Structure formats: structure tokens, C-alpha cells
Simulated scan of single mutants.
Amino acid sequence: MKILVVDDEPSLREFLAESIRSQGYEVLAACDGCEALELFEAQNPELVFSDIRMPRMDGLDFLSAIRDRNRETIVVLVTGLGNEEFALEALRRGANDFLRKPFTQQALFPLVEKYAGIIATRSRLQETLNFIVRRSFVMSLDNHMERVPIVVQRLMLETGEAIPADQRLGVRIGLVELIANAIEHGNLEITYEEKMAAMNASLDGIQNLHQQRLAQPHLAARRVTIDFTMDSEACTWTITDEGSGFDWTLLPSPLDPENLEHPNGRGIFLARLHFDSVDFLGAGNQVRVRKLLPRPPAASDGKPASSSASPAASTPAPAP
């Protein structure tokens, strides 16, 4: 897997590149968006870490250039204190995640591992499910985090080509986040404070914490159930864990830039960007997400299409 690192600060660029390289990945490095775009076009990396504030071409323009060329590349924007509004704009433009400076290898490595798993399990087979009118099935998953990307790839395979190509990566990442939350915070009862303490303790701290919880039979026996349905209008996934739930009304607002700094609800925050609805049910141990599907074009009646745009289509996007 090729990973592109972009930052105008030599020390941070070198730290990022060497840290990722130490995990066995091929790393490309660039000092600004212009140089990075040349590398991107020549090398086609699967994962990009890019600073936002850079000379010549900043991270937002570089992100837009990537999305013009490839919707499947995973892009993580690196933000500094006070750049929360830029981070939100990056997510609106199609960034998949963000990493806030200053950061440690304990924060970096789980992010790289998560997206490496998603990239490794992308299907290269011809999808043949495009004529299904309605389908549904249920999966039951144990609490081994390394299986989550494979399960999500299977879930995405069931959708055929119903979800537009430029939205599939976002949906895939959103499902990974929500299922991981169901395992970690639901079934294994790991609090956000415990997770952060484990990540800060050592590079394998979070893995050790997982193993400690899995050693408890009553936690290890729990399952995550994923109920999937697809019809002509939408794909719907209902994810249920066997934990005690939580008060979902206390989740931070995804529209508040200050919440970019909080680890609480990070996965849910990112998931909200990729689904048309995210609803918590019951005690909070069940979440239902829905992705609306494009309507098929109406049959032609021989009349020329109207040249006037609909009000919704002509409404400009809200300012960041």
C-alpha cells in the first residue's frame, strides 16, 4: 500500500513519513499541494495524509484536486489548533478523516491500521447484484476488531452498484466506525477515557485493552448483529450490540467546530457525514443508518428536457 504524506514543515513531514514507514508501508512525501499532486498522478497512492495550511497549493485545494481525479482514495487532513473550521470544510469537500496536531504514534498507528484494513479488503470482483428489487439479511459478528473491515466489505458487496461510486468509500468508512463502536464501547464496555489512556500508555495499549476485555467470558460471548435491507429507495443497516447502551442525547453536535477536539463520539460524528439519517434506538445500544439511493431516470416521453434547474439543484451550498 502506498501512502502519501504532505506537509510544508520538514520535521513533521519526516516524523509522519518515518513513523508510517516503520510499519512496513511504502511512503511518498511532498512539501506542498503542487508537488503532492504530481506524485499523486504519477504514483496513485491509496491513502493520503495532508496538512491544510501550505504554500502554493493548500490542503483544501489539493483535496479538491484529488476528488476530481479519484473518489476512492482515502484522505486524512492534518489540522492544527484553531483550524477547526478548515477541518469541517475539508470533510464537506470529501476528506475521510482528520488528525489533529500535535499527535503521537499512538494516535497515528491505529488510524493507519484501520484504513489499511479497508483498502486491503476492497473487492475487485464484478458486482452482479444490480437488478435486485429488495433484499435483506442478518450478520452476527464476534468482538475481534480485525474482522470489521472484511465484514463491511461483505456488506458493501450486497449493495451491488446501487450506491454511487463517489459515495461508496464514505459509506464503507461510516460502517467501519459504527461497528467498531458497537464492539469497543458496547460489547467490551471500553469507555472513551479508558481508550485514550490505553492509546497514550503504549503503541499496543489499545490491543492489550481489547485482549483484557476479551479474557472476560461474559464480555467475549457478546455479539454484534447487523440487519441489512435494501429496496429501490434506500439501503438501511441496523447495528445492535449487547452492551448496556448509553445516553445518545448527550452526543456532541457534529456542526460545532469545537467538537473536532473531543474523542467522544468521533466515529458517530464521521458516520453522520456519510448517511442520510443516523438514529439511535432503545437504550442506545442500537443504531440505524440509512443511505438514500438515486432515483432511476424517468422514461423518455419524446419531449425535450426542461432547461430550468429545480430550486434544490440551484441552491448554493452553505458557506463553511
Results as ranks from 00 to 15, higher is better:
residue 195 K to L: 10
residue 188 L to V: 14
residue 175 L to Q: 00
residue 173 I to T: 08
residue 200 N to Q: 15
residue 159 T to L: 01
residue 163 I to Y: 01
residue 158 E to A: 13
residue 168 R to Q: 14
residue 195 K to P: 06
residue 175 L to C: 11
residue 184 E to M: 15
residue 196 M to R: 15
residue 171 V to M: 08
residue 159 T to M: 01
residue 196 M to K: 15
residue 179 I to Q: 06
residue 164 P to N: 03
residue 181 N to F: 03
residue 197 A to G: 05
residue 165 A to W: 11
residue 162 A to Q: 10
residue 180 A to H: 13
residue 170 G to R: 05
residue 177 E to D: 11
residue 185 H to G: 14
residue 158 E to G: 09
residue 192 Y to T: 06
residue 192 Y to C: 07
residue 194 E to L: 04
residue 180 A to P: 13
residue 175 L to R: 06
residue 179 I to L: 03
residue 153 Q to G: 12
residue 154 R to V: 03
residue 192 Y to G: 10
residue 173 I to Y: 04
residue 200 N to G: 14
residue 166 D to F: 11
residue 153 Q to R: 12
residue 166 D to K: 10
residue 199 M to N: 00
residue 175 L to P: 05
residue 170 G to M: 10
residue 198 A to S: 06
residue 173 I to L: 14
residue 175 L to N: 04
residue 199 M to W: 02
residue 176 V to T: 10
residue 155 L to H: 06
residue 163 I to K: 00
residue 185 H to P: 12
residue 173 I to E: 04
residue 164 P to M: 07
residue 193 E to G: 10
residue 175 L to W: 06
residue 180 A to T: 15
residue 158 E to T: 10
residue 171 V to R: 03
residue 186 G to Y: 05
residue 185 H to A: 15
residue 154 R to N: 11
residue 176 V to Y: 09
residue 176 V to I: 12
residue 175 L to G: 03
residue 173 I to F: 08
